[in-house]
Every structure is written in C-alpha cells, then in structure tokens.
Design a protein around this nucleic acid. Structure first.
Lengths: 333, 333
DNA sequence: ACCGGACATGAATACGTATGTAATACAATG
DNA sequence: CATTGTATTACATACGTATTCATGTCCGGT
C-alpha cells in the first residue's frame, strides 16, 4: 500500500541508498540514474518517511510551540511563527498550555521536536529548566520566566506602562485607576511597574481601591470595569493591562451607559486589530507582536543551527503610543 | 547527554527490551525488576524517544490539522480539537493553508501523522484524493469538498441561510441585500443557496446590485458594506455570510453615520463571541463550531482506531437563530 | 526425582532512511 | 598494456524502540 525507498530501488533497479541520494539531489548520482529513480518514485507516488529520516539524521525539523489557546493574542502570534519557520524548513507543533505537571510536557522532551518556543511562561515554571537540562534549544516569546537564562524576545513592557500613563496625563487626567493583570507573568508585572513609576513621577497616587486585578481576557475587563465603576468615586480614567481587558471594559461602560472618553477614559496595551475598529477606536500602546513572533522564530532556528554565541540573546522590541479616541476629549492629537 | 533505553538497561542491569516492557507496564515484568528499571530511568531522567517508538509501532499518535490561520473562526476551532485529541492520547500538528500545490502538503503524506483534519477544503481541492490514495484517515470539518467521499462534520449551512432570511422577514424587512462569500467553499455557497431559496419562497427578489461578493473576513465586510450603501437605493437590511463580515459592515455603518438597525439592519452567521459584545449586539445564526470541532476530532480518532464502519459518516449539526439588536427595531423578540 | 508448565528475561529482528566505507567500472597516463 | 585515479554504485550499519521467539529458571505434581 505505502511504498518505501526500497520499493523504489527495486523498481528502478538500484540500491536503496542510491534512491536516498538521488532524491536528495546528491551530485554523486548520475543524471541518468537520478531520472530513473525519479520516475520510479513518481510511479509509486513515493514520499520519504519523515520518521525514518528523523531517526537517521537525529533531527526532526519540527518546533514545539507552547501557547495558551484561550489567550486572545495567540492568533496574532501563531501565523508569523508558522510562516517564519516554514520559510526556513521547519514545521510547527502546537501544545496547549498546561499546569506545571511536567509529565504534560513530555512531547517536548521525547525528541519529537528540535526546539521549543515558549509564549506563556510563568515566573515559577520549571519547564525551561528541564529543557535546559536536556540541552533542547528554546526561545521565550512575549513573557519570560523560569530559573534559567535563555534566549528571549519581549516588548519593553515597562515602557508600555510609562507610555500609557503619559497619554492620560497629557490629556489632563489625574484621577486614574487600573485594571491590572496577574502578577505571575512578566508582561503584566512589568507593565504595572511602569504604570506605578510614571504615576509616582507625576505625583499622582494610585488608590488601592482603584486597582482591580484579573487576567488578560475580555471577561476580566468587563467584570473589573463594573467593579471599578460601582465605587462611590470611580476613577475618570482607567489603564488596562491589555487591549482585551480594555475592550471588555469598553463594553461594560456601554452597558452601564457611560460615555467613553467623556465619562471615563480608557487606555489599553497591545494594539490588537480589534482596537482599530471604529466601534472601539481604542487608544492603546502598540506591542509589535507579529514582528516579535517572527523574530523569535528566526532566533530559535539560528540557535538550533548553531549560528548564535553560547551566551543567551535578548531582544527587546520598542513600543509606541497609538492615539485614538478613548483617552481624551480633544481630537487634536 | 541524552539517554536511551539501552543506557537505562545497562544501569539497571537488564536488557533493553526489559526496559521497554517495564516502563510500559507490561505484567510480564517482575515488580522488583520494574522498580529497578524505574529507578534507573529516573536517575538518567530518561524519556522514551517518540521517534523510535513511532517507527517501531508504525503509529505517531499525531493528527495534522489543515487550517487557514487568517480565518477568524480558527481560534474557535483549534482549542476544542486540541483538547479532544489530547483526551484520547493524540497530539496536534498545525499546518497552514496553502494553495493546492500538493508538495506543500507533504507533511501530511510523509507518515508523520496518523490522520488529518481538514477545516478549509475548497471544492476543487486534490488533497482529499491524495490522502485517500494513501488510505490516511481524514475528516472534513466545517467545509466539505474534493472528489472523494469521506467522513465529515458540518453545520446545516443551507438552513442557516433560511433562518437568517426568516429573521429579517419576521421583522418586517423586504428590501434585502447580501454580503456573500466565495463560491468555491461549501459553507458560503450553501448559505447563499438557503438565502436565495427563502427569499424566493417569500416572493422577494434579490437584485444583482444588492449582492456584493467577498471573502469571510472583517475587511471584506467593511468594504462590501461601503459599496452596498453607496448605491442610490441601498437595501434596508443586509445578510452577511459570516459574523466577521457583519461586524466589518457594522463598523462601516458606524463610520458612515448609519444607525443599526434603524437605518439598515444586519444579520450575521456564526455567532462568534464578539457578536455578543454589547458594542456589537449582533443578531446572527449560531453555528456550533466548538461542538463540531470536538465531534470531528472524536470522529477522526474513531476512524483511526477502526471503530467506524467502512462507509463514510456524515454529521450535520443544527443551527439556530440568535436574536439580538441588529435585525429589528422592536426589542420584543 | 523427573517432567511439564508457567513465567521472567534475553537475543534477534523489524520499522525507513541516511551515511561511511568498500567495491566496481572506466578513463587517462606512463 | 599496466597502473593509478576517479566516478559511481552497492554493502553494511546506525538511529531508538517494540515485538516475536527462544532460552532459562523455578515451581508443583506425580
């Protein structure tokens, strides 16, 4: 039913190794032989087994991606990774985020991938250590964490916090609240640190009651906004840890009959496509995720092919303000 | 650096096959031996090579997913597939949609997956035939197409078209336009056929100028809506081939200063999460994509494990109207 | 005490490909 | 014509695991 290189060899009247060499374009094979082999392969619709090939070469040309499938940013990250890897001859194996039960990560450790791209590392994760122990190349994208120091590609999340605050202050806001994210991720805690520093620099105090902590998603923003706005003196401006949270907050505001930005201003971080919809028109801080994803994929391939120095490489991508309609009354920006 | 079953065998003082048996829980191994092997494996932090295992068993326990990464529905489909497969001991390999250059699909044909889940099949695609030729199990999800008859899981897209029209007619609309999708996909053409039949049944004519054809995405809805509305007598209601198109249209309407549904009504198809946002509040027809995805994944595993009859199985999932705020003035539904 | 059987383990081999080495054929050179 | 070198192909083997078969051991029954 399925044909092997041996079948092709028999049909072409050559040996199995010759088939291997001929199909891989080895110059040591006569053009005439190569043609005969190619014809036989075509006749049997032969496709080399990746399994046999991988076992023999000790390389799979496959990369594992650890991603949180429920993360709204994930559709932004995956396509660039896929394309960048494909362009360099690698394939992508997607793994869902799981708790730190290391047995769940066995697909990454059983030699079925040549390298790993981590997109949702928590600070306390042990996975990076296990990969390091087996000297499996890895790159951390977006978030960093774990014990070992490895290649990473992140945005300047601290600066993102600074920029978000600056946008609001320049629009005249001083009564500011925050829909914060989980402290166990570097993205969230770095952004929050930036926000707090910028507020402190401007002598603006951030009341504890004006900080609601949640996750990165839409629901979290919706619920957090309702909680913030139910206070006696709700803040007049809210910085959100992500665009998804901001858009959730935007919907909550709409439900509550609050006008944005007249009644309450909103600023997100990420600049996802949805933020640019005229229905949202969300002022935000751009995180260049597709570029970062591409960068990380190429970095990983470079690392796997030994094109990098032994010491880890760290790329920090710059962020920038995206001024739209939710942070200020004046449209003169 | 990396340890093999032979290394474990040497350390435990047994043979390599015994290691294989012991770690796989073969009852023919003494408890005492099993423990000695387990201890040795732990000491060497041994993880069995999936490569060697697959080559020996002639099974990878991996499934390939062919998906269009730019399709907005894709984030709805992938997580349920992943989880359903994981629950039955399979992993997921994601492949980007490519043109029908069959060489691009070699990852599906080179024995590196046990089965394939097709989510973006075009009518003319040759991939199903090639898979069939190699007797690689496959299931078509959402869309169907290709020459061969195989297992499939789809929604009742024709009925979705009927339901969408019925919603508008019951709200009193008779001046109806359509943002249609590509004719080369079964989802789009079935929905369109349903719409046309329902309109004909109600003696409503669909003017050619009131049909704008595009793709499934947001941009397509935005552009199509602008084109529709720029006519001298634009339709008072628009049926969109997908929610993404409808939401693009919604944004265009917002930009054009048109009120929805007072100036123009909109109905989508899919019921994506975004449609339920209060900013959108989109009336639509629910396509149970997550359930379909789970169904398809389980169907594929059943097929791979020989639990299905030889004849192809076809599942058609029902659709239902989701009445929200964009199809009618009255909120009494 | 001998034999048969149950059981645990080792030896051999298969899976499909790639590669290093040996062998063959042929051409060129003295 | 013999010899050396080169080009081409065949042979043997490695990769890591699972499985079939053969071997050996221990036990109980007669």
């Amino acid at each position: 039913m399925v044909s092997t290189s041996r079948d092709v060899a028999r049909l072409a009247g050559v040996s199995q190794p010759t088939v291997s060499r001929a199909l891989r374009g080895d110059p040591k094979v006569t053009a005439e032989t190569r043609e005969r082999v190619a014809a036989a392969a075509l006749a049997l619709s032969y496709v080399p087994s990746q399994l046999g090939r991988s076992l023999s070469t000790q390389a799979t040309r496959r990369v594992g991606i650890v991603a949180d499938l429920s993360n709204p940013l994930y559709p932004l990250i995956v396509p660039p990774i896929h394309d960048a890897l494909a362009a360099r001859g690698y394939r992508m194996v997607l793994l869902a985020e799981r708790d730190d039960d290391s047995s769940g990560y066995s697909p990454l450790l059983d030699r079925s991938v040549d390298g790993v791209l981590l997109t949702t590392t928590r600070q306390k994760s042990t996975l990076p250590f296990e990969l390091h122990q087996r000297s499996i190349p890895m790159v951390m994208l977006n978030r960093i964490g774990g014990i070992v120091d490895t290649d990473s590609v992140v945005a300047d999340n601290f600066d993102a916090g600074l920029v978000a605050v600056k946008m609001l202050i320049e629009a005249g806001h001083r009564d500011i609240g925050m829909l914060a994210g989980p402290t166990e991720t570097s993205t969230s805690s770095d952004r929050e640190a930036g926000v707090r520093e910028a507020l402190a620099d401007a002598d603006i105090s951030l009341r504890q009651s004006n900080v609601v902590r949640g996750w990165f998603g839409h629901d979290s923003g919706d619920a957090g906004m309702r909680k913030l706005m139910s206070q006696e003196h709700p803040p007049r401006a809210v910085i959100c840890v992500s665009d998804s949270v901001a858009i959730g907050a935007l919907n909550a505001a709409h439900d509550l009959g609050l006008r944005v930005p007249q009644d309450v201003a909103l600023v997100g971080i990420d600049n996802v496509p949805t933020a640019s919809w005229s229905l949202c028109n969300l002022s935000t801080v751009s995180i260049p995720l597709p570029e970062m994803a591409k960068d990380a994929a190429n970095l990983l391939v470079d690392r796997m092919t030994g094109k990098l120095p032994a010491t880890p490489v760290h790329h920090v991508h710059p962020v920038r303000a995206v001024l739209r309609g939710t942070h200020t009354l004046s449209n003169d920006t």
